[in-house]
Design a protein around this nucleic acid. Structure first.
Lengths: 198, 198
DNA sequence: GCATTAAAATATACACTGTTCAATTTAAAA
DNA sequence: TTTTAAATTGAACAGTGTATATTTTAATGC
Protein backbone atom coordinates (compact mmCIF):
# COMPACT_ATOMS: atom_id res chain seq x y z
CA UNK A 1 0.00 0.00 0.00
CA UNK A 2 1.41 3.41 0.81
CA UNK A 3 0.75 6.53 2.82
CA UNK A 4 -1.93 4.93 4.90
CA UNK A 5 -3.82 7.38 7.03
CA UNK A 6 -3.91 4.94 9.95
CA UNK A 7 -1.15 6.70 11.82
CA UNK A 8 0.91 9.83 11.53
CA UNK A 9 4.65 9.58 11.53
CA UNK A 10 4.74 10.40 15.23
CA UNK A 11 2.04 7.93 16.13
CA UNK A 12 3.92 5.27 14.22
CA UNK A 13 7.10 6.09 16.10
CA UNK A 14 5.26 5.75 19.40
CA UNK A 15 3.60 2.52 18.30
CA UNK A 16 6.94 0.95 17.43
CA UNK A 17 8.60 2.18 20.62
CA UNK A 18 5.70 0.96 22.73
CA UNK A 19 5.54 -2.50 21.20
CA UNK A 20 9.33 -2.66 20.99
CA UNK A 21 9.62 -1.95 24.68
CA UNK A 22 7.10 -4.67 25.52
CA UNK A 23 8.98 -7.09 23.31
CA UNK A 24 12.36 -6.15 24.78
CA UNK A 25 11.03 -6.42 28.33
CA UNK A 26 9.53 -9.82 27.64
CA UNK A 27 12.18 -11.68 25.70
CA UNK A 28 15.33 -9.67 26.39
CA UNK A 29 17.94 -8.20 24.11
CA UNK A 30 19.31 -11.50 22.83
CA UNK A 31 15.95 -12.61 21.48
CA UNK A 32 14.65 -9.22 20.46
CA UNK A 33 13.52 -8.99 16.84
CA UNK A 34 12.61 -5.87 14.88
CA UNK A 35 10.65 -8.03 12.44
CA UNK A 36 8.54 -9.37 15.26
CA UNK A 37 7.78 -5.82 16.42
CA UNK A 38 6.68 -4.90 12.90
CA UNK A 39 4.47 -7.96 12.70
CA UNK A 40 2.79 -7.18 16.01
CA UNK A 41 1.85 -3.63 15.11
CA UNK A 42 0.53 -4.72 11.73
CA UNK A 43 3.18 -3.09 9.58
CA UNK A 44 5.96 -4.58 7.50
CA UNK A 45 9.62 -4.64 8.40
CA UNK A 46 10.30 -1.94 5.83
CA UNK A 47 8.25 0.57 7.79
CA UNK A 48 10.52 0.26 10.80
CA UNK A 49 13.45 1.08 8.57
CA UNK A 50 11.56 4.07 7.20
CA UNK A 51 10.96 5.43 10.66
CA UNK A 52 14.21 4.54 12.44
CA UNK A 53 16.67 3.94 9.63
CA UNK A 54 18.38 0.96 11.22
CA UNK A 55 18.21 -1.67 13.88
CA UNK A 56 20.84 0.21 15.89
CA UNK A 57 18.83 3.43 15.82
CA UNK A 58 15.74 1.54 16.97
CA UNK A 59 17.58 0.00 19.87
CA UNK A 60 19.12 3.30 20.86
CA UNK A 61 15.63 4.80 20.92
CA UNK A 62 14.32 1.88 22.99
CA UNK A 63 17.17 2.22 25.47
CA UNK A 64 16.48 5.94 25.58
CA UNK A 65 12.93 5.16 26.57
CA UNK A 66 14.18 2.88 29.32
CA UNK A 67 16.34 5.71 30.64
CA UNK A 68 13.29 8.01 30.64
CA UNK A 69 11.27 5.51 32.67
CA UNK A 70 14.21 4.93 34.96
CA UNK A 71 14.69 8.62 35.67
CA UNK A 72 10.98 9.06 36.39
CA UNK A 73 11.08 6.02 38.70
CA UNK A 74 14.04 7.48 40.57
CA UNK A 75 12.46 10.92 41.00
CA UNK A 76 9.20 9.35 42.10
CA UNK A 77 10.97 7.41 44.82
CA UNK A 78 12.75 10.52 46.04
CA UNK A 79 9.71 12.76 45.97
CA UNK A 80 8.42 13.76 49.39
CA UNK A 81 11.27 11.93 51.05
CA UNK A 82 13.12 13.81 53.74
CA UNK A 83 15.70 11.51 55.26
CA UNK A 84 17.87 8.77 53.81
CA UNK A 85 17.47 10.06 50.29
CA UNK A 86 20.74 8.62 49.01
CA UNK A 87 19.87 5.24 50.44
CA UNK A 88 16.50 5.47 48.77
CA UNK A 89 18.22 6.26 45.47
CA UNK A 90 20.43 3.16 45.75
CA UNK A 91 17.44 1.03 46.56
CA UNK A 92 15.58 2.55 43.61
CA UNK A 93 18.54 1.64 41.38
CA UNK A 94 18.23 -1.99 42.42
CA UNK A 95 14.46 -2.05 42.33
CA UNK A 96 14.32 -0.64 38.84
CA UNK A 97 16.90 -3.08 37.53
CA UNK A 98 15.18 -6.04 39.18
CA UNK A 99 11.71 -4.89 38.12
CA UNK A 100 12.77 -4.28 34.54
CA UNK A 101 15.52 -6.88 34.18
CA UNK A 102 15.49 -7.25 30.45
CA UNK A 103 15.07 -3.59 29.60
CA UNK A 104 17.73 -2.57 32.11
CA UNK A 105 20.14 -5.25 30.96
CA UNK A 106 19.65 -4.18 27.35
CA UNK A 107 21.10 -0.78 28.27
CA UNK A 108 24.45 -2.53 28.62
CA UNK A 109 24.09 -5.50 26.28
CA UNK A 110 23.55 -3.28 23.30
CA UNK A 111 26.46 -1.23 22.02
CA UNK A 112 26.76 0.90 18.93
CA UNK A 113 29.48 -0.07 16.44
CA UNK A 114 32.89 0.99 17.73
CA UNK A 115 33.67 4.59 17.01
CA UNK A 116 30.01 5.58 16.80
CA UNK A 117 29.20 7.90 19.70
CA UNK A 118 25.62 7.84 21.00
CA UNK A 119 23.39 10.75 20.10
CA UNK A 120 23.47 13.94 22.14
CA UNK A 121 19.95 13.08 23.24
CA UNK A 122 20.98 9.73 24.69
CA UNK A 123 23.97 11.28 26.40
CA UNK A 124 21.63 13.84 27.96
CA UNK A 125 19.49 11.10 29.46
CA UNK A 126 22.47 9.38 31.06
CA UNK A 127 23.63 12.73 32.39
CA UNK A 128 20.17 13.41 33.82
CA UNK A 129 20.29 10.27 35.92
CA UNK A 130 23.81 11.11 37.04
CA UNK A 131 22.66 14.61 37.97
CA UNK A 132 20.06 13.20 40.35
CA UNK A 133 22.69 11.15 42.16
CA UNK A 134 25.07 14.10 42.19
CA UNK A 135 22.39 16.29 43.72
CA UNK A 136 21.78 13.78 46.51
CA UNK A 137 25.47 13.36 47.17
CA UNK A 138 26.01 17.10 47.27
CA UNK A 139 23.25 17.30 49.86
CA UNK A 140 25.15 15.11 52.31
CA UNK A 141 28.64 16.38 51.51
CA UNK A 142 30.14 19.07 53.77
CA UNK A 143 30.50 22.53 52.18
CA UNK A 144 34.25 22.19 51.61
CA UNK A 145 33.79 18.98 49.60
CA UNK A 146 31.06 20.13 47.23
CA UNK A 147 33.52 20.06 44.36
CA UNK A 148 33.76 16.30 44.76
CA UNK A 149 30.05 15.75 44.16
CA UNK A 150 30.27 15.07 40.42
CA UNK A 151 33.31 12.77 40.40
CA UNK A 152 31.89 10.99 43.42
CA UNK A 153 28.51 10.59 41.75
CA UNK A 154 30.14 9.00 38.68
CA UNK A 155 32.23 6.69 40.82
CA UNK A 156 29.44 5.63 43.15
CA UNK A 157 27.17 5.05 40.20
CA UNK A 158 29.79 2.69 38.85
CA UNK A 159 30.08 0.93 42.21
CA UNK A 160 26.35 0.50 42.60
CA UNK A 161 26.12 -0.57 38.97
CA UNK A 162 28.70 -3.27 39.57
CA UNK A 163 26.80 -4.63 42.55
CA UNK A 164 23.50 -4.51 40.71
CA UNK A 165 24.99 -6.16 37.64
CA UNK A 166 26.52 -8.99 39.66
CA UNK A 167 23.20 -9.42 41.43
CA UNK A 168 21.34 -9.80 38.16
CA UNK A 169 23.81 -11.85 36.16
CA UNK A 170 24.31 -14.48 38.82
CA UNK A 171 27.88 -13.67 39.78
CA UNK A 172 26.93 -12.81 43.35
CA UNK A 173 24.83 -15.94 43.67
CA UNK A 174 27.82 -17.93 42.44
CA UNK A 175 30.02 -16.39 45.10
CA UNK A 176 27.55 -16.79 47.94
CA UNK A 177 26.66 -13.13 48.34
CA UNK A 178 23.01 -12.91 49.36
CA UNK A 179 22.71 -9.19 50.15
CA UNK A 180 23.98 -7.24 47.13
CA UNK A 181 21.98 -4.14 48.09
CA UNK A 182 23.47 -4.13 51.56
CA UNK A 183 26.98 -4.46 50.13
CA UNK A 184 26.37 -1.59 47.72
CA UNK A 185 25.08 0.59 50.53
CA UNK A 186 28.14 -0.20 52.63
CA UNK A 187 30.49 0.85 49.80
CA UNK A 188 28.65 4.13 49.33
CA UNK A 189 28.82 4.77 53.07
CA UNK A 190 32.57 4.05 53.01
CA UNK A 191 33.10 6.64 50.28
CA UNK A 192 31.04 9.26 52.03
CA UNK A 193 32.90 8.66 55.29
CA UNK A 194 36.11 9.76 53.59
CA UNK A 195 34.59 13.22 53.21
CA UNK A 196 33.11 13.26 56.64
CA UNK A 197 29.57 12.80 55.39
CA UNK A 198 26.97 10.15 56.00
CA UNK B 1 33.67 -37.82 5.20
CA UNK B 2 33.93 -39.14 8.74
CA UNK B 3 36.32 -40.19 11.46
CA UNK B 4 39.26 -38.37 9.92
CA UNK B 5 42.50 -39.08 11.67
CA UNK B 6 43.61 -35.48 11.36
CA UNK B 7 42.84 -34.70 14.97
CA UNK B 8 41.84 -36.53 18.11
CA UNK B 9 38.76 -35.41 19.98
CA UNK B 10 40.91 -33.42 22.39
CA UNK B 11 42.92 -31.78 19.63
CA UNK B 12 39.70 -30.80 17.92
CA UNK B 13 38.39 -29.28 21.13
CA UNK B 14 41.57 -27.24 21.45
CA UNK B 15 41.48 -26.21 17.80
CA UNK B 16 37.93 -24.91 18.14
CA UNK B 17 38.65 -23.15 21.41
CA UNK B 18 41.81 -21.58 20.00
CA UNK B 19 40.22 -20.34 16.81
CA UNK B 20 37.03 -19.42 18.64
CA UNK B 21 38.99 -17.29 21.04
CA UNK B 22 40.78 -15.50 18.21
CA UNK B 23 37.47 -14.89 16.51
CA UNK B 24 35.79 -13.68 19.70
CA UNK B 25 38.72 -11.38 20.48
CA UNK B 26 38.69 -9.92 16.99
CA UNK B 27 35.04 -9.33 16.22
CA UNK B 28 33.43 -9.41 19.65
CA UNK B 29 30.46 -11.33 20.99
CA UNK B 30 27.82 -9.61 18.86
CA UNK B 31 29.51 -10.63 15.61
CA UNK B 32 30.85 -13.97 16.76
CA UNK B 33 29.83 -16.90 14.57
CA UNK B 34 30.27 -20.60 15.28
CA UNK B 35 29.95 -21.31 11.56
CA UNK B 36 32.86 -18.99 10.83
CA UNK B 37 35.00 -20.79 13.42
CA UNK B 38 34.20 -24.12 11.76
CA UNK B 39 35.09 -22.72 8.36
CA UNK B 40 38.42 -21.40 9.58
CA UNK B 41 39.60 -24.66 11.08
CA UNK B 42 38.55 -26.57 7.98
CA UNK B 43 35.66 -28.46 9.50
CA UNK B 44 31.92 -28.16 9.03
CA UNK B 45 29.48 -26.60 11.45
CA UNK B 46 28.22 -30.04 12.43
CA UNK B 47 31.57 -30.93 13.94
CA UNK B 48 31.30 -28.09 16.43
CA UNK B 49 27.96 -29.47 17.51
CA UNK B 50 29.49 -32.93 17.82
CA UNK B 51 32.19 -31.61 20.13
CA UNK B 52 30.34 -28.97 22.16
CA UNK B 53 26.69 -29.88 21.74
CA UNK B 54 25.41 -26.34 21.38
CA UNK B 55 26.29 -22.73 20.76
CA UNK B 56 25.78 -21.97 24.43
CA UNK B 57 28.17 -24.70 25.52
CA UNK B 58 30.79 -23.42 23.09
CA UNK B 59 30.50 -19.92 24.42
CA UNK B 60 30.65 -21.08 28.00
CA UNK B 61 33.86 -22.94 27.16
CA UNK B 62 35.28 -19.87 25.43
CA UNK B 63 34.44 -17.67 28.39
CA UNK B 64 36.00 -20.29 30.64
CA UNK B 65 39.19 -19.97 28.64
CA UNK B 66 39.10 -16.22 29.06
CA UNK B 67 38.82 -16.69 32.82
CA UNK B 68 41.84 -19.02 32.75
CA UNK B 69 43.93 -16.46 30.89
CA UNK B 70 42.69 -13.72 33.18
CA UNK B 71 43.64 -15.63 36.33
CA UNK B 72 47.08 -16.37 34.94
CA UNK B 73 47.50 -12.70 34.02
CA UNK B 74 46.52 -11.65 37.52
CA UNK B 75 48.89 -14.07 39.24
CA UNK B 76 51.72 -13.09 36.93
CA UNK B 77 51.28 -9.44 37.84
CA UNK B 78 51.31 -10.26 41.53
CA UNK B 79 54.29 -12.60 41.39
CA UNK B 80 57.42 -11.22 42.99
CA UNK B 81 55.59 -8.13 44.10
CA UNK B 82 56.07 -7.09 47.70
CA UNK B 83 54.24 -3.83 48.22
CA UNK B 84 51.00 -2.43 46.84
CA UNK B 85 49.73 -5.85 45.82
CA UNK B 86 46.07 -4.91 46.01
CA UNK B 87 46.66 -1.83 43.88
CA UNK B 88 48.51 -4.02 41.40
CA UNK B 89 45.54 -6.38 41.30
CA UNK B 90 43.14 -3.53 40.51
CA UNK B 91 45.45 -2.29 37.80
CA UNK B 92 45.70 -5.82 36.42
CA UNK B 93 41.89 -5.98 36.33
CA UNK B 94 41.77 -2.88 34.17
CA UNK B 95 44.73 -3.85 32.03
CA UNK B 96 43.30 -7.24 31.26
CA UNK B 97 39.91 -5.85 30.36
CA UNK B 98 41.44 -3.14 28.18
CA UNK B 99 43.92 -5.51 26.56
CA UNK B 100 41.26 -8.14 25.84
CA UNK B 101 38.23 -5.90 25.37
CA UNK B 102 36.10 -8.23 23.35
CA UNK B 103 36.90 -11.41 25.22
CA UNK B 104 36.41 -9.70 28.57
CA UNK B 105 33.17 -8.06 27.49
CA UNK B 106 31.87 -11.40 26.23
CA UNK B 107 32.08 -12.70 29.81
CA UNK B 108 29.15 -10.42 30.60
CA UNK B 109 27.40 -10.12 27.24
CA UNK B 110 26.77 -13.81 27.05
CA UNK B 111 24.26 -15.33 29.43
CA UNK B 112 22.89 -18.83 29.58
CA UNK B 113 19.11 -19.21 29.19
CA UNK B 114 17.35 -18.17 32.39
CA UNK B 115 17.25 -20.92 34.94
CA UNK B 116 20.32 -22.67 33.56
CA UNK B 117 23.12 -22.44 36.09
CA UNK B 118 26.68 -22.41 34.71
CA UNK B 119 28.73 -25.57 35.08
CA UNK B 120 30.58 -26.32 38.30
CA UNK B 121 33.78 -25.88 36.32
CA UNK B 122 32.89 -22.35 35.28
CA UNK B 123 31.83 -21.45 38.78
CA UNK B 124 35.20 -22.72 40.01
CA UNK B 125 37.02 -20.37 37.68
CA UNK B 126 35.08 -17.34 38.88
CA UNK B 127 35.73 -18.42 42.46
CA UNK B 128 39.45 -18.77 41.73
CA UNK B 129 39.71 -15.15 40.64
CA UNK B 130 37.71 -14.06 43.66
CA UNK B 131 40.01 -16.10 45.89
CA UNK B 132 43.05 -14.16 44.65
CA UNK B 133 41.40 -10.84 45.52
CA UNK B 134 40.27 -12.23 48.86
CA UNK B 135 43.81 -13.34 49.66
CA UNK B 136 45.17 -9.88 48.93
CA UNK B 137 42.46 -8.19 50.95
CA UNK B 138 43.06 -10.53 53.86
CA UNK B 139 46.73 -9.58 53.74
CA UNK B 140 45.99 -5.91 54.45
CA UNK B 141 43.07 -6.43 56.84
CA UNK B 142 43.81 -6.35 60.58
CA UNK B 143 43.54 -9.69 62.41
CA UNK B 144 40.14 -8.92 63.93
CA UNK B 145 38.59 -8.23 60.52
CA UNK B 146 39.78 -11.35 58.69
CA UNK B 147 36.23 -12.65 58.60
CA UNK B 148 35.30 -9.75 56.36
CA UNK B 149 37.79 -10.73 53.67
CA UNK B 150 35.41 -12.78 51.52
CA UNK B 151 32.37 -10.47 51.59
CA UNK B 152 34.69 -7.54 51.03
CA UNK B 153 36.39 -9.28 48.12
CA UNK B 154 33.01 -9.90 46.44
CA UNK B 155 31.91 -6.33 47.01
CA UNK B 156 35.14 -4.71 45.86
CA UNK B 157 35.22 -6.92 42.80
CA UNK B 158 31.77 -5.58 41.97
CA UNK B 159 32.93 -2.00 42.54
CA UNK B 160 36.02 -2.39 40.39
CA UNK B 161 33.96 -4.22 37.79
CA UNK B 162 31.52 -1.32 37.62
CA UNK B 163 34.31 1.17 37.08
CA UNK B 164 35.99 -1.01 34.48
CA UNK B 165 32.71 -1.62 32.68
CA UNK B 166 31.87 2.06 32.54
CA UNK B 167 35.38 2.76 31.28
CA UNK B 168 34.98 0.27 28.44
CA UNK B 169 31.40 0.92 27.40
CA UNK B 170 31.80 4.66 27.15
CA UNK B 171 29.66 5.69 30.11
CA UNK B 172 32.58 7.32 31.89
CA UNK B 173 33.64 9.14 28.74
CA UNK B 174 30.07 10.41 28.41
CA UNK B 175 30.15 11.73 31.95
CA UNK B 176 33.58 13.33 31.66
CA UNK B 177 35.45 10.90 33.91
CA UNK B 178 38.96 10.53 32.57
CA UNK B 179 40.57 8.46 35.34
CA UNK B 180 38.42 5.39 35.94
CA UNK B 181 41.32 3.43 37.42
CA UNK B 182 42.01 6.21 39.93
CA UNK B 183 38.36 6.32 40.92
CA UNK B 184 38.25 2.56 41.41
CA UNK B 185 41.38 2.70 43.56
CA UNK B 186 39.86 5.45 45.69
CA UNK B 187 36.72 3.38 46.33
CA UNK B 188 38.77 0.36 47.36
CA UNK B 189 40.82 2.55 49.70
CA UNK B 190 37.61 3.93 51.20
CA UNK B 191 36.37 0.45 51.98
CA UNK B 192 39.64 -0.66 53.51
CA UNK B 193 39.76 2.47 55.66
CA UNK B 194 36.53 1.36 57.35
CA UNK B 195 38.44 -1.63 58.73
CA UNK B 196 41.52 0.36 59.60
CA UNK B 197 43.55 -1.12 56.77
CA UNK B 198 45.28 0.52 53.86
C1' DG C 1 42.73 -59.62 3.81
C1' DC C 2 37.88 -58.77 3.85
C1' DA C 3 33.27 -57.79 5.71
C1' DT C 4 31.13 -55.59 9.41
C1' DT C 5 30.23 -52.06 12.63
C1' DA C 6 29.88 -47.81 14.67
C1' DA C 7 31.79 -43.29 15.24
C1' DA C 8 32.71 -38.95 13.01
C1' DA C 9 32.09 -35.58 9.60
C1' DT C 10 29.32 -33.53 6.15
C1' DA C 11 25.59 -31.57 3.54
C1' DT C 12 21.16 -30.14 3.46
C1' DA C 13 17.05 -28.24 5.18
C1' DC C 14 14.64 -25.17 8.38
C1' DA C 15 13.22 -21.16 10.49
C1' DC C 16 14.91 -17.36 11.74
C1' DT C 17 17.72 -12.65 11.59
C1' DG C 18 18.93 -7.56 9.75
C1' DT C 19 19.27 -5.10 5.46
C1' DT C 20 18.29 -3.37 0.87
C1' DC C 21 15.47 -1.86 -2.78
C1' DA C 22 12.30 -2.03 -6.80
C1' DA C 23 7.51 -1.97 -7.20
C1' DT C 24 3.21 -0.52 -5.58
C1' DT C 25 -0.26 2.10 -3.28
C1' DT C 26 -2.25 6.28 -1.84
C1' DA C 27 -2.87 10.87 -0.02
C1' DA C 28 -2.05 15.45 -1.22
C1' DA C 29 -0.93 19.10 -4.68
C1' DA C 30 -1.57 21.19 -9.17
C1' DT D 1 -8.65 14.96 -12.76
C1' DT D 2 -4.13 14.47 -13.49
C1' DT D 3 0.30 14.65 -11.50
C1' DT D 4 3.54 14.08 -7.95
C1' DA D 5 5.86 12.40 -4.26
C1' DA D 6 5.76 10.19 0.12
C1' DA D 7 4.68 5.89 2.46
C1' DT D 8 4.37 1.00 2.49
C1' DT D 9 5.19 -3.38 1.01
C1' DG D 10 7.30 -7.74 0.06
C1' DA D 11 10.68 -10.21 -2.18
C1' DA D 12 15.64 -11.00 -2.44
C1' DC D 13 20.13 -11.53 -0.04
C1' DA D 14 23.48 -13.07 2.97
C1' DG D 15 23.83 -14.40 7.14
C1' DT D 16 22.70 -17.03 11.76
C1' DG D 17 21.93 -21.39 15.13
C1' DT D 18 19.96 -25.91 15.04
C1' DA D 19 18.55 -30.62 13.65
C1' DT D 20 19.08 -34.69 11.07
C1' DA D 21 19.75 -37.95 7.30
C1' DT D 22 23.59 -39.36 4.74
C1' DT D 23 28.12 -40.40 3.73
C1' DT D 24 32.80 -41.46 4.86
C1' DT D 25 36.19 -43.81 7.39
C1' DA D 26 38.79 -45.98 11.03
C1' DA D 27 38.65 -49.79 13.94
C1' DT D 28 36.83 -54.51 14.92
C1' DG D 29 35.85 -59.46 14.13
C1' DC D 30 36.42 -63.35 11.36
Amino acid sequence: MGRRSDHTREELRSLILEEGHCQLSEVGFARFSAREVAKRIGYSIGTIYNVFGSYDALLLALNGRTLDVWLAFLEERLARREEGRLDAAIEAYFDFALGHRHAWTALYDFRLPEGTPPSEEYRGKVEAITAVIMREIAAVLPPDAQGEALPLARSLLASVHGHCFFALNGTFAMLGEDDPLGAARARVADALARFGAG
